[in-house]
Structures are given as structure tokens and as C-alpha cells.
């Protein structure tokens, strides 16, 4: 450890009270949403690591009691209507630029629906 035991956050992580431990099924559900897949071995490792990460994030959850209805970025910067972009056409880029990082077909992006 490069962080001494006096560190508050580290301490919070260690004694952090958890809502619930994350399950493998939940990780799989998240992976599906995130369009990622894990091998069984990766999943084991990941679930364990993720559990700790969530415990870490949970210090935030534990720090505020109750609901968050009042949230609205009150001091967030705002722009007025007049500062929005005027509706004026800017020339688009040539098709060969748009497709410059892939092999296209007749100006289209193209994906084989399956490939061996």
C-alpha cells in the first residue's frame, strides 16, 4: 500500500457497509448492456474485483440519507437561446473522408452479418 491507513477514503472503503454483494448474474446483465463478454475465468475475477469497486462507490451512496429528488444542477452553466448555433448549412465532408477508416461499398458503411 502506498496510502497510509490514516486515509479517510481507504478507511471508508474498508468498513463500507454494502447494500448487497454483486452477483455473477448481475455482472452478466451489466456486460450485456455494455456489449462486453467475459470468459468464465474472467467473470470470476471480475466479479470479485467489481465487488470491491462497488463497495468503494458505495461510500457515496451511504453519505447521503434518503432521496435525491432535489437534484438539479443549480449552479450548472447555462446558455441562452441567442447563444445557440444558428441554422446555417456548413458543407459536409466528402464521402471518401467519411469512409476513410473502413472498407465501404458504393459510399455505404458495410458489415457482413456473419463471418467465419
Amino acid at each position: 500500500m502506498f496510502v497510509s491507513s490514516g486515509d479517510l477514503t481507504a478507511a471508508a472503503v474498508r468498513k463500507g457497509v454494502r447494500i448487497m454483494a454483486i452477483s455473477k448474474t448481475e455482472i452478466e446483465k451489466l456486460a450485456k448492456l455494455a456489449k462486453l463478454s467475459f470468459t468464465d475465468e474472467e467473470l470470476e475475477r471480475f466479479t470479485a474485483e467489481f465487488d470491491e469497486i462497488i463497495a468503494f462507490a458505495d461510500t457515496v451512496n451511504q453519505s447521503i440519507e434518503g432521496g435525491t429528488e432535489q437534484i438539479r444542477s443549480v449552479d450548472a452553466r447555462m446558455v441562452s437561446f441567442d447563444d445557440l448555433r444558428p441554422d446555417e448549412v456548413v458543407p459536409s465532408l466528402p464521402n471518401d473522408k467519411i469512409l476513410s477508416n473502413v472498407e465501404g461499398y458504393n459510399g455505404f458503411f458495410k458489415v457482413e452479418r456473419s463471418k467465419k
Binding site: 448549412v89 456548413v90 464521402n95 467519411i98 458504393n106 455505404f108
Partner: peptide
């Protein structure tokens, strides 16, 4: 509108594929 919601590309209908793009 004349242009897209987040860029200056035209909203004109049709056109060759991927030519109203940025």
C-alpha cells in the same frame, strides 16, 4: 430546419449515401 440538430450538415432529403455527413 436547414441543418442537423448538432452539426451544420444539410437535412436535405436524398443525396448519395454518407455525403451529408461530418
Amino acid at each position: 430546419t436547414k441543418t442537423k440538430i448538432f452539426c451544420g450538415c444539410t437535412t436535405e432529403f436524398g443525396g448519395e449515401p454518407n455525403t451529408h455527413c461530418c
